[in-house]
Protein backbone atom coordinates (compact mmCIF):
# COMPACT_ATOMS: atom_id res chain seq x y z
CA UNK A 1 0.00 0.00 0.00
CA UNK A 2 1.26 3.46 -0.82
CA UNK A 3 1.90 5.68 2.17
CA UNK A 4 1.00 8.73 0.13
CA UNK A 5 -2.35 7.26 -0.81
CA UNK A 6 -2.92 6.38 2.81
CA UNK A 7 -1.96 9.87 3.80
CA UNK A 8 -4.27 11.46 1.27
CA UNK A 9 -7.18 9.20 2.15
CA UNK A 10 -7.01 10.07 5.83
CA UNK A 11 -8.15 13.62 5.62
CA UNK A 12 -9.23 14.08 9.18
CA UNK A 13 -6.27 13.67 11.51
CA UNK A 14 -7.23 11.36 14.33
CA UNK A 15 -6.44 12.18 17.90
CA UNK A 16 -3.10 10.82 18.91
CA UNK A 17 -3.65 7.70 20.87
CA UNK A 18 -0.24 7.21 22.41
CA UNK A 19 1.40 3.84 22.60
CA UNK A 20 -0.36 2.43 25.65
CA UNK A 21 -3.47 0.38 25.16
CA UNK A 22 -6.61 2.41 25.97
CA UNK A 23 -7.99 1.69 29.40
CA UNK A 24 -11.40 -0.01 29.77
CA UNK A 25 -12.84 3.22 31.16
CA UNK A 26 -11.77 5.12 28.05
CA UNK A 27 -13.15 2.41 25.81
CA UNK A 28 -16.46 2.62 27.65
CA UNK A 29 -16.73 6.40 27.40
CA UNK A 30 -15.77 6.26 23.76
CA UNK A 31 -18.39 3.67 22.82
CA UNK A 32 -20.96 5.51 24.96
CA UNK A 33 -20.12 8.69 23.10
CA UNK A 34 -20.51 6.90 19.81
CA UNK A 35 -23.94 5.53 20.73
CA UNK A 36 -24.97 8.97 21.99
CA UNK A 37 -23.80 10.76 18.84
CA UNK A 38 -25.78 8.37 16.67
CA UNK A 39 -28.96 7.95 18.65
CA UNK A 40 -29.41 11.20 20.57
CA UNK A 41 -32.14 12.23 18.16
CA UNK A 42 -34.04 8.98 18.69
CA UNK A 43 -33.81 9.45 22.47
CA UNK A 44 -34.91 13.07 22.06
CA UNK A 45 -37.83 11.80 20.02
CA UNK A 46 -39.08 9.52 22.83
CA UNK A 47 -38.57 12.28 25.41
CA UNK A 48 -40.54 14.72 23.24
CA UNK A 49 -43.29 12.15 22.92
CA UNK A 50 -43.46 11.75 26.71
CA UNK A 51 -43.50 15.54 27.21
CA UNK A 52 -46.18 15.91 24.61
CA UNK A 53 -48.44 13.36 26.27
CA UNK A 54 -47.95 15.26 29.57
CA UNK A 55 -48.82 18.53 27.91
CA UNK A 56 -52.04 17.11 26.50
CA UNK A 57 -52.86 16.21 30.09
CA UNK A 58 -52.68 12.45 29.60
CA UNK A 59 -55.57 12.65 27.22
CA UNK A 60 -55.02 9.10 26.09
CA UNK A 61 -57.49 9.35 23.25
CA UNK A 62 -55.09 11.74 21.54
CA UNK A 63 -51.58 10.92 22.68
CA UNK A 64 -50.91 7.80 24.74
CA UNK A 65 -47.67 8.01 26.77
CA UNK A 66 -44.72 5.93 25.52
CA UNK A 67 -44.86 3.60 28.54
CA UNK A 68 -48.42 2.57 27.72
CA UNK A 69 -47.57 1.85 24.09
CA UNK A 70 -44.37 -0.07 24.88
CA UNK A 71 -46.29 -1.90 27.60
CA UNK A 72 -49.03 -2.98 25.21
CA UNK A 73 -46.53 -4.24 22.66
CA UNK A 74 -44.42 -6.16 25.16
CA UNK A 75 -47.36 -7.41 27.23
CA UNK A 76 -49.57 -8.51 24.36
CA UNK A 77 -46.94 -9.53 21.88
CA UNK A 78 -49.18 -12.47 20.90
CA UNK A 79 -51.74 -10.03 19.51
CA UNK A 80 -49.17 -8.56 17.14
CA UNK A 81 -47.11 -11.53 16.00
CA UNK A 82 -49.55 -13.29 13.63
CA UNK A 83 -50.32 -10.06 11.77
CA UNK A 84 -46.67 -9.11 11.71
CA UNK A 85 -45.73 -12.50 10.28
CA UNK A 86 -48.43 -12.23 7.64
CA UNK A 87 -47.30 -8.76 6.53
CA UNK A 88 -43.67 -9.85 6.40
CA UNK A 89 -44.57 -12.92 4.33
CA UNK A 90 -46.50 -10.78 1.85
CA UNK A 91 -43.61 -8.31 1.62
CA UNK A 92 -40.98 -11.01 1.21
CA UNK A 93 -43.00 -12.89 -1.41
CA UNK A 94 -43.57 -9.74 -3.44
CA UNK A 95 -39.96 -8.69 -3.01
CA UNK A 96 -38.60 -11.96 -4.40
CA UNK A 97 -41.13 -12.12 -7.25
CA UNK A 98 -40.72 -8.45 -8.19
CA UNK A 99 -36.93 -8.47 -8.15
CA UNK A 100 -36.77 -11.71 -10.15
CA UNK A 101 -39.21 -10.32 -12.71
CA UNK A 102 -37.35 -7.00 -12.88
CA UNK A 103 -34.04 -8.79 -13.51
CA UNK A 104 -35.57 -11.04 -16.17
CA UNK A 105 -37.16 -8.17 -18.07
CA UNK A 106 -33.93 -6.17 -17.81
CA UNK A 107 -32.05 -9.06 -19.45
CA UNK A 108 -34.70 -9.31 -22.19
CA UNK A 109 -34.42 -5.57 -22.80
CA UNK A 110 -30.62 -5.86 -22.90
CA UNK A 111 -30.76 -8.68 -25.42
CA UNK A 112 -32.92 -6.88 -27.99
CA UNK A 113 -32.38 -3.41 -29.36
CA UNK A 114 -35.98 -3.20 -30.47
CA UNK A 115 -37.43 -4.15 -27.09
CA UNK A 116 -34.91 -1.84 -25.48
CA UNK A 117 -35.97 1.09 -27.67
CA UNK A 118 -39.61 0.41 -26.92
CA UNK A 119 -39.20 -0.18 -23.20
CA UNK A 120 -37.00 2.80 -22.35
CA UNK A 121 -39.74 5.47 -22.59
CA UNK A 122 -42.27 3.12 -21.02
CA UNK A 123 -39.88 2.56 -18.12
CA UNK A 124 -39.43 6.31 -17.79
CA UNK A 125 -43.17 6.83 -17.59
CA UNK A 126 -43.69 3.96 -15.19
CA UNK A 127 -40.82 5.11 -13.00
CA UNK A 128 -42.50 8.39 -12.21
CA UNK A 129 -45.94 6.82 -11.65
CA UNK A 130 -46.74 6.70 -7.92
CA UNK A 131 -47.23 2.93 -7.78
CA UNK A 132 -48.38 2.88 -4.17
CA UNK A 133 -51.12 5.38 -5.06
CA UNK A 134 -52.41 2.82 -7.55
CA UNK A 135 -53.41 0.41 -4.80
CA UNK A 136 -57.16 1.19 -5.26
CA UNK A 137 -56.90 0.41 -8.99
CA UNK A 138 -55.07 -2.86 -8.36
CA UNK A 139 -57.58 -3.74 -5.66
CA UNK A 140 -60.38 -3.16 -8.17
CA UNK A 141 -58.70 -5.35 -10.80
CA UNK A 142 -57.50 -8.21 -8.64
CA UNK A 143 -60.12 -8.17 -5.90
CA UNK A 144 -59.89 -7.60 -2.15
CA UNK A 145 -57.57 -10.35 -1.01
CA UNK A 146 -54.07 -11.50 -0.19
CA UNK A 147 -53.31 -12.02 -3.86
CA UNK A 148 -53.71 -8.28 -4.50
CA UNK A 149 -51.37 -7.46 -1.64
CA UNK A 150 -48.83 -9.78 -3.23
CA UNK A 151 -49.35 -8.15 -6.63
CA UNK A 152 -48.80 -4.71 -5.11
CA UNK A 153 -45.58 -5.66 -3.31
CA UNK A 154 -44.40 -7.34 -6.54
CA UNK A 155 -45.10 -4.24 -8.64
CA UNK A 156 -43.39 -2.01 -6.09
CA UNK A 157 -40.31 -4.26 -6.09
CA UNK A 158 -40.20 -4.58 -9.86
CA UNK A 159 -39.09 -1.12 -10.99
CA UNK A 160 -35.94 -0.50 -8.96
CA UNK A 161 -34.58 -3.94 -9.90
CA UNK A 162 -35.49 -3.43 -13.54
CA UNK A 163 -33.92 0.03 -13.77
CA UNK A 164 -30.78 -0.63 -11.72
CA UNK A 165 -29.98 -4.05 -13.18
CA UNK A 166 -30.61 -2.64 -16.66
CA UNK A 167 -28.20 0.24 -16.17
CA UNK A 168 -25.50 -2.09 -14.79
CA UNK A 169 -25.93 -4.39 -17.81
CA UNK A 170 -25.35 -1.46 -20.14
CA UNK A 171 -22.41 -0.08 -18.15
CA UNK A 172 -20.13 -3.12 -18.13
CA UNK A 173 -16.39 -2.36 -17.99
CA UNK A 174 -15.27 -1.69 -21.54
CA UNK A 175 -11.87 -3.38 -21.28
CA UNK A 176 -13.39 -6.66 -20.07
CA UNK A 177 -16.07 -6.51 -22.77
CA UNK A 178 -13.34 -6.02 -25.36
CA UNK A 179 -11.39 -8.93 -23.91
CA UNK A 180 -14.50 -11.13 -24.16
CA UNK A 181 -15.02 -10.04 -27.77
CA UNK A 182 -11.41 -10.86 -28.65
CA UNK A 183 -11.80 -14.27 -27.01
CA UNK A 184 -14.81 -14.85 -29.25
CA UNK A 185 -17.32 -15.24 -26.43
CA UNK A 186 -20.97 -15.54 -27.41
CA UNK A 187 -23.52 -13.08 -26.07
CA UNK A 188 -24.90 -15.62 -23.63
CA UNK A 189 -21.39 -16.36 -22.33
CA UNK A 190 -20.72 -12.65 -21.90
CA UNK A 191 -24.00 -12.36 -20.04
CA UNK A 192 -23.25 -15.29 -17.76
CA UNK A 193 -19.57 -14.60 -17.03
CA UNK A 194 -19.40 -10.82 -17.08
CA UNK A 195 -22.69 -8.98 -17.14
CA UNK A 196 -24.78 -10.81 -14.56
CA UNK A 197 -22.05 -10.75 -11.89
CA UNK A 198 -21.47 -7.10 -12.80
CA UNK A 199 -25.19 -6.42 -12.34
CA UNK A 200 -25.37 -7.91 -8.83
CA UNK A 201 -24.46 -4.62 -7.06
CA UNK A 202 -27.33 -2.95 -8.93
CA UNK A 203 -29.69 -5.66 -7.71
CA UNK A 204 -28.41 -5.17 -4.16
CA UNK A 205 -29.05 -1.43 -4.30
CA UNK A 206 -32.53 -2.22 -5.58
CA UNK A 207 -32.99 -4.58 -2.64
CA UNK A 208 -32.01 -1.89 -0.13
CA UNK A 209 -34.31 0.67 -1.76
CA UNK A 210 -37.22 -1.75 -2.10
CA UNK A 211 -37.32 -3.73 1.13
CA UNK A 212 -38.78 -0.96 3.36
CA UNK A 213 -41.07 0.19 0.53
CA UNK A 214 -42.45 -3.31 0.08
CA UNK A 215 -43.31 -3.52 3.79
CA UNK A 216 -44.93 -0.09 3.64
CA UNK A 217 -46.92 -0.97 0.51
CA UNK A 218 -48.15 -4.21 2.07
CA UNK A 219 -49.35 -2.35 5.16
CA UNK A 220 -51.04 0.39 3.14
CA UNK A 221 -52.84 -2.21 1.03
CA UNK A 222 -53.94 -4.03 4.16
CA UNK A 223 -55.07 -0.73 5.67
CA UNK A 224 -57.24 0.06 2.64
CA UNK A 225 -58.58 -3.41 1.89
CA UNK A 226 -58.78 -5.18 5.24
CA UNK A 227 -58.13 -8.89 5.66
CA UNK A 228 -55.06 -9.73 7.71
CA UNK A 229 -51.78 -8.06 8.58
CA UNK A 230 -50.40 -5.12 10.53
CA UNK A 231 -52.19 -2.57 8.34
CA UNK A 232 -55.55 -4.12 9.10
CA UNK A 233 -54.72 -4.40 12.82
CA UNK A 234 -53.95 -0.70 12.78
CA UNK A 235 -57.12 0.26 10.88
CA UNK A 236 -59.29 -1.81 13.24
CA UNK A 237 -57.69 -0.42 16.42
CA UNK A 238 -58.20 3.11 15.11
CA UNK A 239 -61.87 2.51 14.34
CA UNK A 240 -62.46 0.82 17.76
CA UNK A 241 -60.56 3.66 19.53
CA UNK A 242 -57.97 1.29 20.94
CA UNK A 243 -55.34 4.01 20.98
CA UNK A 244 -52.63 2.00 22.72
CA UNK A 245 -53.01 -0.87 20.26
CA UNK A 246 -53.07 1.50 17.27
CA UNK A 247 -49.87 3.26 18.35
CA UNK A 248 -48.40 -0.13 19.19
CA UNK A 249 -49.08 -1.33 15.66
CA UNK A 250 -47.46 1.85 14.34
CA UNK A 251 -44.46 1.29 16.62
CA UNK A 252 -44.07 -2.34 15.54
CA UNK A 253 -44.38 -1.29 11.90
CA UNK A 254 -41.72 1.37 12.40
CA UNK A 255 -39.31 -1.00 14.12
CA UNK A 256 -39.86 -3.58 11.38
CA UNK A 257 -39.28 -0.99 8.65
CA UNK A 258 -36.06 0.23 10.27
CA UNK A 259 -34.91 -3.36 10.79
CA UNK A 260 -35.65 -4.16 7.12
CA UNK A 261 -33.68 -1.12 6.04
CA UNK A 262 -30.70 -1.92 8.26
CA UNK A 263 -30.71 -5.59 7.23
CA UNK A 264 -31.01 -4.73 3.54
CA UNK A 265 -28.14 -2.27 3.85
CA UNK A 266 -25.96 -4.88 5.54
CA UNK A 267 -26.75 -7.36 2.75
CA UNK A 268 -25.90 -4.71 0.17
CA UNK A 269 -22.54 -3.94 1.79
CA UNK A 270 -21.54 -7.59 2.08
CA UNK A 271 -22.59 -8.29 -1.49
CA UNK A 272 -20.97 -5.20 -2.96
CA UNK A 273 -17.62 -6.16 -1.43
CA UNK A 274 -17.95 -9.60 -2.99
CA UNK A 275 -19.05 -8.52 -6.47
CA UNK A 276 -17.09 -5.37 -7.25
Amino acid sequence: MSIDALSASRRVPVAQEGTARPSPARLLTRSLGRVLSRYWTVAAFVVAWQLWSWLTGYNQIVVPPPAMVFGDVLGNIGAYLPDLGWTLAMSAGGLVAGMALGTMIAVVVWSSRIVSGMMTPVALVMRSVPVVAMIPVLARVFGYGWFTVLVITTVVSFFPAFVLVGSRLRAAPQATSDLMAVLGASRSTVLRLLLLPHAVPGLLVAFRLTAPTAVLAAMLAEYLMGGRGLGTLFAQSVSFHEVGRAWGAALVATVVSVACFVAARAVERRGTVRFS
Binding site: M1, S2, I3, D4, A5, S7, A8
Partner: peptide, 10 residues
Protein backbone atom coordinates in the same frame (compact mmCIF):
# COMPACT_ATOMS: atom_id res chain seq x y z
CA UNK B 1 5.86 6.56 -5.05
CA UNK B 2 4.88 5.47 -1.58
CA UNK B 3 8.06 6.73 0.11
CA UNK B 4 6.18 9.27 2.19
CA UNK B 5 7.29 12.37 0.30
CA UNK B 6 3.71 13.63 -0.07
CA UNK B 7 3.26 13.11 3.66
CA UNK B 8 6.16 15.53 4.26
CA UNK B 9 4.36 18.13 2.18
CA UNK B 10 1.03 17.47 3.88
Amino acid sequence: SGCGKSTVLR
